[in-house]
Design a protein around this nucleic acid. Structure first.
Lengths: 141, 141
DNA sequence: CTTGACCTTCCAGTGACTGGAAGCCCTAAC
DNA sequence: GTTAGGGCTTCCAGTCACTGGAAGGTCAAG
């Protein structure tokens, strides 16, 4: 199978597949004409990568998962550990974003949003805030 | 004020400040010895940038906000619009992360996590899922 | 006068691609 | 037979927002 069909079937862009070969995540054979020739198991790896990346695993984590995937003696505990660490990471990101959202919406609410030059959002950014005060304190001089 | 104190007072790393100068976000004078000399208004800009970046505005958005900041005729409507767009972006990210979290925790739950070689997380990544089925369907051949 | 902190520039690397140029290869239509 | 197109190749450069490091100038204290 050529790179085009591999891309179509894995859901990865052609460019990305070539990049994955560059960094050694997949190692397709070459045909006589120099084209990459993807086997079924290459395709499996690509699908695996597509899915794992979409679940937020980094390339290095994907590499690790792939080696566990290929390892008949793999311990599911290892994989579960990786997944749970990822969950904690996602939780952390969610709560960061939530607190960010609170600050932004406080600011937006305080702003009358008309054509007057006066804007509490800008004032806050400039550190002369009355809105959202105390949420981000100036770090002392 | 030298770059070190500017860094301390703005909360930005020295390297970042030099980078901000490179891309034209701040334009400190130079002393005779070639050192950057930060005025109070330079420091204000740096603090502004620190805060806006921590609120998730991109560098280009910061540039825009700074020009509104410097514009005596700025309309607060413009700033509010930018802020509200940012809120929508944050909301989108939060809901993506939440759905990601659901899939990951379904997978983690389905995995017995012991030393047996059999692991539903890997199976799912490989596309032979029984767990979390239907959450991410294979995109048709 | 030396030490060490602080400053300078420049170059390269990060992560994970993405875009584009220049040039083969292959098929199908004329 | 030739031309047009699409797909394939490599390589180089760019993205975003920094970050690290090397090589070297400047300054204040001891």
């Amino acid at each position: 199978m050529n790179i085009g069909s591999a891309a179509e079937q894995s859901g990865l862009p052609v460019k990305t597949i070539r990049y994955y070969e560059d960094i050694g995540l997949v190692l397709p054979q070459r045909s006589e004409n120099g084209y990459r020739e993807f086997s079924n198991s290459d395709l499996e790896r690509l699908k695996f990568l597509q899915r794992a990346r979409s679940l937020g695993f980094s390339i290095e984590e994907c590499r690790e998962l792939l080696s566990l995937y290929g390892d008949r003696n793999r311990a599911s505990a290892d994989v579960k550990k990786l997944t749970q660490a990822k969950i904690r990471e996602v939780d952390r990101k969610i709560s960061e974003l939530k607190s960010l959202r609170r600050v932004l919406s406080d600011l937006a609410e305080a702003c009358h949003g008309d054509n007057r030059p006066d804007c509490p959002i800008i004032d806050d950014l400039a550190g002369q805030s009355t809105a959202a005060m105390g949420t981000f304190k100036e770090k002392g001089k």
